[in-house]
Design a protein around this nucleic acid. Structure first.
Length: 490
DNA sequence: CGGTTTTGACCTGCGC
DNA sequence: GCGCAGGTCAAAACCG
């Protein structure tokens, strides 16, 4: 019953021509026509036009254009082509039928060509993502090395000056980062070296393992820095696009709600873990703490959160190397990592660093009231809708002792990823039939009942993966107000 | 049957 | 050294 209603909405939506379009190669179809027809539909299109700022869903006479095939392999889109092709051709004239058939054939060929192109682009995206992650890792490892050097320097030569407090804080973080080593770090290394996790650990700095000596950076993962995400949710955990397996649960002191422990199961030996716990003061708030970097490619829906947490962790660690985060993050001549910062999606304008927490922790607070905004098409095209959290307008780290705040520049700078990358990401997202379905459902929901407070929940439930099925516990989404995580492709 | 969740036991680090 | 708390392990239960 519910599904039928949903289907009708989708069909109505498709007929309406308001389905967002991707950039087609047929540029002649994109006439820069600012017709009043379009403005009439603008209010309902604007918030879902993920791919193109120059979408022109209508032709000169108001018919749906037959080239509105933005996505890939599902029958859904074939139907779209068929529907559109038939729309407005009610004549019984045989010539028209022949023309229509020819047009259909041509469009199918074009669709096949686009599928092939999307396939290539998806592969390209995978390669880019992998090299991008590797590069990111390297840059951050270099910074980690700098932390070590500065820390030693700091021990030898106590610093003075007006920024003493900040330097002390940063160095304390660095010291904590380098000194502490959680037990799972052993696990990570042990997993890589085939050693039993139970093997007693000797002094890591004096390891006899040549691999460790040759690759000290490998022993400095970013497990130390943690990134917490606070979001309102009735679900047991947030849907961040990754697959997690629960491996423990504990009652934490001072909180009646148990803390659940998850580890990433998307790849064997992935060191990433997360803790999920409800806030004691407000049980509707779910705090998810991420630790570590993924050692495997991530699906587009997971990239946003992973990039954000990695960037936040990196910011934390890089902040320990220098008090000048402004310079680090905003310098146009900085390394690629700054580009990374400039593009990470959950960014905000304020961050505070804590030296008091056992682990340096940065918290992304998504529980604050949303600000009205329109996602810039450039941004959406870079990260996809799943990456866009309208309420992620604050990054706040745990600040137990009134540490000074470091003002960061707006990290959503104008710098964009290379155009090729943007197009690749766009193609990959558009190719994903799950995304198509989720998008269609979401749009149908918007059209069908924009004032329904449960809209997001409905979408969330549609995407919810039974924790018991398929072996994944990633299915629950937070109730992020207006959160586009509801467009998750999972 | 394979994978996940549950849950008590165990390990480790830290403060006193 | 002891106790506490956080984190992890692993066997049993559970589920599709």
């Amino acid at each position: 019953m519910e599904e039928h209603t949903q289907d009708r909405r989708e069909i109505a939506f498709l007929h309406s021509g308001e389905f967002p379009r991707g950039d087609s190669d047929d540029s002649e179809d994109h006439q820069p026509n600012e017709s009043s027809e379009e403005h009439r539909h603008e209010s309902s299109i604007k918030e879902v036009d993920f791919f193109s700022a120059k979408s022109q869903p209508y032709d000169d006479i108001g018919h749906v254009r037959t080239t509105t095939t933005i996505v890939g392999s599902s029958g859904f889109n074939d139907d779209l082509v068929m529907v559109n092709s038939c729309h407005g051709t009610s004549s019984d004239d045989g010539d028209d039928k022949t023309k229509t058939k020819t047009q259909i054939i041509r469009l199918k060929l074009e669709l096949a060509r686009l599928h092939e192109e999307n396939y290539k682009l998806k592969h390209l995206l995978d390669e880019i993502s992998e090299s991008y992650n590797n590069l990111q890792r390297r840059v951050l490892l270099v910074r980690q090395t700098q932390v070590e050097g500065l820390h030693k320097q700091h021990e030898d030569i106590p610093q003075a000056g007006s920024s003493q407090a900040l330097e002390d804080m940063n160095n304390e973080i660095a010291a904590t980062t380098l000194k502490r080593r959680s037990p799972d770090d052993v696990d990570d290394r042990d997993m890589h070296q085939g050693r039993s996790p139970k093997t007693p650990r000797l002094d890591q700095n004096k390891s006899n393992n040549p691999d460790e000596q040759q690759n000290p950076h490998d022993q400095l993962p970013f497990r130390k820095a943690r990134v917490s995400v606070r979001a309102r949710s009735d679900a047991t955990s947030v849907n961040d696009g990754c697959q997690w397996r629960k491996y423990g649960q504990k009652m934490a002191k001072g909180n009646p709600c148990p803390r659940a422990y998850y580890r990433c199961t998307m790849a064997v030996g992935c060191p990433v873990r997360k803790q999920v716990q409800r806030c004691a003061e407000d049980t509707t708030i779910l705090t998810t703490t991420y630790e570590g970097n993924h050692n495997h490619p991530l699906p587009p829906s997971a990239t946003a959160m992973a990039a954000t947490t990695s960037a936040a962790a990196a910011m934390l660690l890089s902040g320990s190397t220098t008090s000048n985060l402004h310079q680090t993050l905003s310098s146009p001549s900085a390394t690629s990592s700054s580009s990374f910062y400039n593009n990470f999606p959950y960014t905000s304008t304020i961050a505070t660093l804590s030296a008091s927490a056992p682990f340096p922790t940065i918290t992304l607070d998504l529980t604050n009231p949303p600000r009205p905004l329109q996602p810039p098409p450039q941004f959406l095209s870079q990260y996809g809708p799943a990456a866009f959290l309208p309420n992620a307008n604050q990054i706040r780290s745990i600040n137990n002792n009134n540490n000074p705040q470091l003002l960061l520049p707006n990290l959503l700078g104008p710098q964009a990823l290379p155009r090729d990358m943007v197009d690749s990401v766009r193609a990959a997202i558009a190719m994903d039939p799950n995304f198509t379905a989720a998008l269609a459902a979401a749009i149908s929901n918007i059209i069908g009942g924009g004032n329904n407070d449960n809209n997001n929940n409905d979408i969330i439930n549609d995407n919810k993966v039974d924790a018991k099925s398929g072996g994944s516990s990633n299915g629950d989404s937070p109730q992020l107000p207006q959160s586009c995580t509801t467009f998750s492709t999972n």
